[in-house]
Amino acid sequence: MTDTNMTAMTQTAAAPSAKATLPPAVRFRFWAWLWGDKRALISLAYLSVLVLAAIFAPLIVPYAPNKQNLMDLLAPPSGAHWLGTDDLGRDTLSRLIYGSYNALYAASLAVGIGVAIGVPLGVFIGFVGGWVDQVGSRIIDGVLAFPPLVLAVAVTGALGIGLTNAMIAVGFAFAPVLARTMRAQTLVVKNALYVEAAVGFGASRLHLILRHILPNAIQPVIVEVTLMLAVALLAEAGLSFLSLGVQPPESSWGGMLARAYHYVEVAPEQMYAPGFAILFTALAFNTLGESIRVLLDPTIKRR
């Protein structure tokens, strides 16, 4: 997230005509901001730990995630199994850690697809304008009218069940949201004086879009994308709960909740860990998104 943020800033600084007087120590400011905004700091720290856990899952898990121990089914938390075991005797903590990989992969994939479709579409129709904008905007409205998860379930059913297809479907539902924001921003930016100046210097359309419009219009999208990661995470959990997403025996937080729900009367404690994992991660993305919003828009008062 911060990476895109940084790239956007450096690109602007590199562009000869636009905003030539950015403070030189952009990188330094980032750390100062993070230190000044404790909520962002905590969220980012939590997410970093989660990313590391997801990457190094095979090294840190106490048990193999699919190793069944039929002598120890639905065990309560103990020294051997910190979070207990599930209905097949698999270690809950290990599955939770492996689940973080699927959760983060799913969220990035869905949002990535939304960005890949939505951002170019929004810039294009906003930049070209006229009937292209008219038609494009109606298409955006039409897809936006769907309840996102209903669309995702339907598209997943068509593409075939499984995590990747489910997240393509969610990304498909995200695309019009981003396109709408990007279009509105492009309309604002394209009439700015520095764009006119660049046109006067004979800049090509591609140069205008890539060097002037995109870097200056992308800011609200950065905020939206961060918030969307939370939505995508919740969607993955939900779709996996419905067994449309991650397929067994692979672990996912939503799938773990589905199994735990079956045995809720026997082992109610099994439903807490995955639920809190989803809640905290979604909360971290949301908090980070709000912090970035405040950072990028100085007119919003810090709450």
Partner: peptide, 14 residues
């Protein structure tokens, strides 16, 4: 903030 981040179906289970 908790209200938007909580997975509804998990809350349902609880």
């Amino acid at each position: 903030s908790l209200g938007v981040a909580v997975p509804n179906f998990w809350l349902g289970i609880i």
